[in-house]
Design a protein around this nucleic acid. Structure first.
Length: 737
RNA sequence: GGACAGUUAGCUCAGCUGGUAGAGCAUCGCUUUUACACAGCGAGGGUCACAGGUUCGAGCCCUGUACUGUCCACCA
């Protein structure tokens, strides 16, 4: 027992300990008793190796799970992986590009298969990383968003929403990325400030302003505010003949309150096919909508001589032509505006009219329940779901208040195909008008229910990834039951905690709440615990391009998992971003080593096995204090135990970590152990001092275990043998002895 | 344009319901004493952004200001 090496070397223990944990079966709640305690792991994207930001999440979740397991709960931490449709396809397409090919040179089936293989490889890498972090999750329930059991549940939801009138297909304007050739939700775009010229053109008797001359070919409506006195003489519907880019046209006057009288000249022409505001105006007034730009960002025949040109190349030439015709009034080159970009590739979003599937967010349900949005907001109001920290509840409400219908179809290949079919009716000679409705079913239909045609074509689109991951809390549990014949859903739903980064509050948390109330009538989880983003020592966001990414596995190799875990949660309040300098991790490695040496001292100094090791709860009972020193340390231990327990219950992990750190180092090591050296020399105090040292060590190991599972388990193994697992010891009670 | 945070030691951050300012790292000095030099002992270092207010008492509560950061929306 006293032959432990002087320094703790994580590499000698970690893999072996993890194997012992996993083989023990205690990651699986079926082997545990007590009230269920459940966390569904946010599934990492299958396309990317894990970074240190993931490590933070896994660490927090593992601390909660280990804490509650030791407190006698039937803990389930369910791991999984997200196919991450768009993200993965983008990454994979880049890979293809490097290899000199592209998805447009492959069949859809070839592409899907290649992407599948790619993802499988990365999935294993990421699961290995999770293991190395010490995550005590139940691998027997590991699940993937493309598992057939999950897809089936997703399809059921889609159909149910369609039948309930919450899911509809509409040909309205959407955020179109010309590079990726897909529509995107608002959340998948970002804005950036740009300086561009702003052109004023003579448009008949008016002067109109635009930053996009290339869209103006089809403009045949001129819009002004109904209250604008300057233009009072022009009446709604009035026709005006004027000379425009490619010759004379007839423009129609439209009055609409969407026009800002203060901006520009207070008059504008509209391009409904390529601008959301213009589209709305056109819809309101039932105006013609004409496409000018194709899906790849090139001009259509309406542009005349400019047909086929890329818009940015065409722009100066168009201005040149207008100038030659004397139609340029002036150019303001100090114009600043925000442009909308694809969040992935940073290319300009080109609004396009493409039919998409939408989920109605604010429409009440047919069974009398409130809308998806309102159910989720009510959950927060009623505190059925609470968000830690509270300030995120405000952010949540604000976003929900302004929510718009959610487009969930994507024109990409990597994902779950949308289970909708369209009747072509060629075999029956003709379709009836009702056949225009899509056929929505969870299994491929045999024939059109209206005309009986067997010539059906499936929708070419796939689901937005968040449509499937948004159903994760119940889908994972239900799918496990379908797969393994368990009763996981009945036992573990609703779950207790959802822990993730605040950056996916809207993408994911809000949607999980809406889906879960819709399908189960219950909240998906009781608590949402949001952590910050891990930053480098200069508070910079980690990114590959900056080269400041910390690879968690590299850190683990160098400092050990426990050091990384402790550094991630030490001295950082929940929800705040976390700077993680390497020195901090190194400091926490010292702490693991300090604990190791405390154990070495106790095991060498005290008689082993201790007389107080017995059948009491958790292995030891509190010894009686014989001296003032004993009394003081035991009182402080009681305080620390209460404090740590309380802080862990209330998600103040950093406070709990601080307390155990201070107690272990400042109180136990610096003070009591030093005193114990004197006490051990006194025969009258020898036994009680040994007991006290043991008791404190054992308690500290338990209190610290959720944070630093490996070193504590390693010491425990040295004390009690490899068959005894600290992982399932009982959490210390704060006794008042 | 709207909202939300932050401003505490050289650096990075804690500080829970108001009661004499803390940690890690860094710095300086001493100590190689059989748990640990991945250490111990000790030291220096803060008008808690600024200005008011409430209170016996404010880093913490209230009002305002400044600066920094983030999110949401987006006008041709």
């Amino acid at each position: 027992m006293n032959e432990l090496p002087k320094a703790y070397d994580p590499r000698q223990y970690e893999d072996d300990i993890y194997r012992r944990w996993e083989e023990s079966g205690f990651f699986n709640p079926d082997n545990l008793k007590g009230e269920p305690y459940t966390i569904i792991m946010p599934p990492p994207n299958a396309n990317a190796p894990s970074h240190v930001g993931h490590a933070l999440g896994y660490t927090i979740q593992d601390i909660l799970i280990r804490f509650h397991r030791m407190r006698g709960r039937k803990t389930l931490w369910l791991p999984g992986t997200d196919h991450a449709g768009f993200e993965t396809q983008v990454v994979f397409e880049k890979k293809l590009e490097k290899e000199g090919t592209s998805r447009f040179k492959m069949t859809r089936e070839e592409f899907y298969q290649a992407c599948w293989d790619y993802v499988q490889t990365n999935k294993h890498i990421s699961e290995t990383a999770i293991r190395r972090l010490g995550a005590s999750c139940d691998w027997s329930r590991n699940i993937f968003t493309l598992d057939p059991e999950i897809v089936k549940i997703v399809y059921q939801t889609f159909k149910q929403m369609y039948d309930d009138g919450l899911m509809y297909r509409a040909g309205r304007i959407c955020n179109w990325c010309p590079k990726h050739q897909t529509g995107l939700s608002d959340l998948e775009t970002k804005y950036e400030e740009r300086h561009d010229p702003f052109y004023f053109f003579k448009y008949g008797p008016f002067v109109i302003g635009t930053s996009r001359p290339e869209t103006k070919f089809g403009d045949k409506y001129v819009v002004m505010h109904p209250q604008d006195k300057r233009y009072a003489k022009y009446k709604e519907g009035q026709k005006i003949e004027l000379e425009w880019i490619n010759g004379p046209i007839t423009a129609t006057i439209i009055k609409d309150e969407a026009v800002d009288m203060e901006f520009g000249t207070g008059v504008m022409t509209i391009t409904p096919a390529h601008d959301p505001v213009d589209f709305e105006i056109a819809t309101r007034h039932k105006l013609d909508i004409e496409e000018v730009i194709d899906k790849r960002g090139k001009l259509l025949p309406i542009a005349g001589e400019f047909e086929g040109m890329k818009i940015l190349d065409a722009r100066p030439k168009i201005v040149e032509k207008l100038a030659a015709k004397g139609l340029v009034d002036r150019i303001d080159d100090k114009y600043t505006h925000n442009v909308q970009l694809c969040y992935k590739c940073g290319n300009l979003i080109e609004p396009q009219i493409v039919p998409q599937w939408y989920v109605a967010m604010t429409k009440p349900l047919p069974d009398g329940r409130p809308s998806l949005r309102d159910m989720a907001v009510a959950a927060v109001d009623k505190k059925e779901v609470t968000i830690v920290t509270e300030r995120f509840e405000k952010t949540f409400r604000h976003w929900m208040a302004n929510i718009r219908d959610w487009p969930i179809s994507r024109q990409i290949w990597w994902g779950i195909p949308i289970p909708a079919w369209y009747c072509r009716g060629t075999d029956v000679g003709r379709c009836r008008p009702e056949c225009k409705n899509p056929i929505v079913a969870t299994e491929p239909p045999q024939e059109c229910p209206v005309c009986g045609s067997k010539d059906l074509e499936q929708d070419q689109d796939t689901f937005d990834t968040w449509f499937s991951s948004g159903q994760w809390p119940y889908a994972t549990l239900m799918a496990n039951d379908a797969k393994n014949g368990t009763k996981t859903f009945a036992t573990h739903y609703p779950t207790q905690v959802m822990e993730t980064g605040w950056d996916i509050l809207f993408f994911w948390i809000a949607r999980m709440m809406m889906f879960s109330y819709y399908r189960t009538g219950k909240p998906p989880f009781e608590k949402v615990f949001l952590h910050g983003l891990v930053r480098d020592k200069d508070r910079q966001k980690m990114s590959k391009s900056k080269g400041n990414v910390i690879d968690p596995l590299g850190v683990i190799d160098q400092y050990g998992t426990d050091a990384l875990r402790f550094a991630l949660i030490f001295s950082t309040a929940a929800g705040n971003d976390i700077p993680l300098p390497e020195e901090k991790i190194n400091g926490m490695k010292h702490f693991a080593n300090k604990l190791w040496n405390i154990a070495r001292y106790v095991l060498a100094a005290a008689v082993f096995p201790s007389p107080i090791r017995g059948g009491t709860e958790g292995g030891v009972s509190a010894p009686e204090a014989k001296t003032e020193t004993d009394k003081a340390i035991l009182a402080k231990l009681t305080d620390a135990t209460k404090d740590i327990t309380n802080n862990l219950e209330n998600f103040r992990l950093h406070e709990a970590a601080q307390t155990i750190y201070d107690f272990t180092w400042r109180e136990f090591a610096d003070k009591y152990i030093e005193e114990s050296k004197k006490q051990l020399e006194d025969p009258a105090l020898e036994d009680s001092t040994c007991d006290t040292l043991y008791f404190i060590l054992v308690t500290v190991l338990k209190l610290l275990h959720p944070f630093m599972p490996f070193v504590t388990e390693a010491i425990w193994g040295e004390m009690y043998g490899a068959k005894q697992l600290l992982m399932v010891e009982k959490w210390p009670k704060a006794s008042n002895s």
